[in-house]
Design a protein around this nucleic acid. Structure first.
Lengths: 222, 222
DNA sequence: TTATACATAATAATCGATTTTTTAACTGAC
DNA sequence: GTCAGTTAAAAAATCGATTATTATGTATAA
């Protein structure tokens, strides 16, 4: 069932990479903050070499800024960047979703239903911790998975991580969240009906509502 | 004049990164090849730490494949991936060019003309070495620069590097190349006239012709 | 032969220490 | 007091060596 049995073998470097990625996306570092490498080393109990390799990867991925001779910083947040990210999500995820609806087979349909179901269970618990976040990412990944473009999927993944830096700034807003949760199931419905047009429209709306949430977070954050 | 006076300060890590990026894009490594880190270390005269940091960045960027406990490999080439990359270029560069034409100011117009002029001088010399490649990249970067989206530019840059792994597989084909060279000037023309529609159509054609070249290279490569 | 277990060589990953560079603190002249 | 120059402390980058893992070779048994 587990499609990527890759990380059975892990290295210190790959583990700390994944940990730091989660923590950066989850907002456990302040935007603009300069990372004290030695402090990180102690905090995460890793050696300097694997830590630096992870930081280099995160910088290439866009979750850190690297400046020669002065280490690594957490990227700052800005309204204009949030707009940029949300717009790119609209374009790329819309494109991918339409293609996925065209190409997705019955295995995909089953995976979609499964992903939506797992997410709904987590929705109900109202305890939206890291586990909900994982299921939520997984759901959106599944939605576009059979789009046929490896690079498109890669870019979308990257944009999601960037977007979540804004969305996860503050505490959850239950009322808006509920609408968004309901849309997940409607997205599956339209996908199964192969209604590209309506599906894309709903996804656009979904991303736009998420954007409103993220923007609110960002503005209340200051 | 030089807008990014950033890499005045460089580190061993950033230097070897840039060198390896160029060599990977320029096809100086065989597709699928496993990199012998020690050999690289000797060949490029760098230490292990900066080399590994560069390799990690290149893997995150997509120019290398990293497998835990078994180092780094050059990604293989495939028809389907070339198709994917070319399609994504069509979508993203088209989008970016249209936006650039909407937002670009008179400074952009001047830079466009300058970039096209420099490229033409290199075209004429028929000696299309690394210098031509740099000017060519710079031209295409300028074309889309004022599109307003940092992330879009980032993705396009990445796709260009990936595309060039195919385009630069074999020797130049003068006849096709000449058509492509001429299109560069026509692209500037249409951009200055702010004719989004025609400009995008020509860019589509330009990318498509480049794709044909890259595909030929790839097929003759085997 | 073919397969399996073991030993050996090669390579990747990591550690601990050193070197280099930047940042902060200090000093004295104006 | 402020500013340039100097020194001290901190941090980043790099090196050389060690450890862990994988790949290779060889001998032995089925």
């Amino acid at each position: 069932m587990n499609q990527h049995l890759q990380p059975v073998i892990s290295t210190a470097s790959s583990r700390i990479y994944e940990t730091l990625r989660r923590d950066l996306v989850g907002g456990r570092f302040a935007a603009g903050e300069k990372l004290a490498i030695n402090a990180l080393k102690d905090h995460y109990h890793v050696g300097l070499s694997p830590l630096r390799e992870a930081l280099n990867k995160l910088a290439a991925y866009g979750l850190l800024i690297q400046e020669n001779q002065r280490g690594f910083r957490v990227p700052t947040l800005s309204r204009s960047e949030l707009d940029d990210i949300a717009n790119m999500r609209l374009e790329l995820e819309g494109m991918a979703f339409e293609r996925a609806i065209q190409h997705g087979d019955d295995v995909w349909e089953a995976e979609l239903l499964a992903a939506a179901h797992r997410l709904k269970r987590a929705d109900l618990s109202l305890e939206k911790g890291e586990e909900w976040e994982v299921l939520h990412s997984q759901f959106h990944r599944t939605l576009v998975a059979p789009c046929g473009s490896v690079w498109l999927l890669r870019f979308i993944e990257q944009l999601h991580d960037q977007f979540d830096r804004y969305r996860r700034l503050g505490p959850k807003i239950p009322t808006v969240r509920q609408t968004l949760d309901e849309q997940h199931h409607e997205l599956v419905e339209l996908a199964l009906q192969r209604d590209s047009k309506a599906a894309r429209a709903l996804l656009d709306d979904h991303i736009h509502k998420s954007y409103q949430v993220a923007l609110k977070r960002y503005q209340e954050h200051a």
